[in-house]
Amino acid sequence: MRQELHGMPDRPSAAARVFVILMFAAFVAPFVPLVVASFSFRWHWPDLLPTRWLWNVRDETPFPVGWDYLLSPVSRLGSAFANTVAIGLVVAALALMTGVPAAYVLARYDFRAKGVAEFFLLLPIIVPQVSIGIGMLLLFMRVGLFRTYPGIVLAHLVPALPYAIRILTAMFQNLDPGYEEVARTLGADRLARLRHVTLPLIAAGLATAGLFAFLISTNIFLLTFLISGGRIATLPTMLFSHIGSGGPLDATTAGLVLIVSVPGLLFLFIADRITGSGLSLATAPAGSRAKEDR
């Protein structure tokens, strides 16, 4: 990185360090009591730590509790997890399939309605999801998509696709058209160019866009909640019903919060491997780069 080459003399000030540490505590420390709570069995007011733990009571309770409950088939956590991942994967695939051609056009062509198209793509991010969700619910009831997996997948596409298109557009803008021109002068036909030049060059961008679509899908609550009609559970809808019914330091809810964070954690690991940068989560650059063509 550039910063390391031209080392600036000024290090962060003491105040900045304290601030960073405080923030770190505020955003990471809350995971600690959740881990403790998830292993607790009895944690009465006003104890600072549980008095009985999961492993103390395994043989005494007639049915599994805490993690044992969550990981047993009774909790249906497994199916919610599988639903979340499967829906996320399908959403990612569909977002790429429909997003790549659109992004290519937006990045490479100048046309009169381009501003309109770009504004239209922003709308799903701006318009409240409840507004879309309830209308969609009524629409889906009519066409038989209510309470179905395809219905949920389609609902998730609404927020996921615009984000994917933004990332993909930036990717195509950063891809120098010169590479394809060179390949043409070297005798590569359309298919060969796609296979040997374009695809390898955009692979990382495709993966990033797909990963984002996956992440957005796994985080959606309301649209799933409305379209599933309570029949298909994902991790967020499952967590929603547990928070709504449990007490403050309920072991099952705490465990569930941790489980629900797993897809995001996976996202971070994979995203870092793809881009190799510490800030890969940053969304696509807002301003589009000037084209160098001609």
Binding site: M23, F24, F27, V28, L215, T218, N219, I220, F221, L235, P236, L239, F240, I243, V257, V260, S261, P263, G264, L265, F267, L268, L281
Partner: peptide, 11 residues
């Protein structure tokens, strides 16, 4: 710091 960004709001 990026962890809260990638988890659902319900977390």
């Amino acid at each position: 710091f990026r962890l809260p960004v990638v988890v659902p709001y319900l977390v």
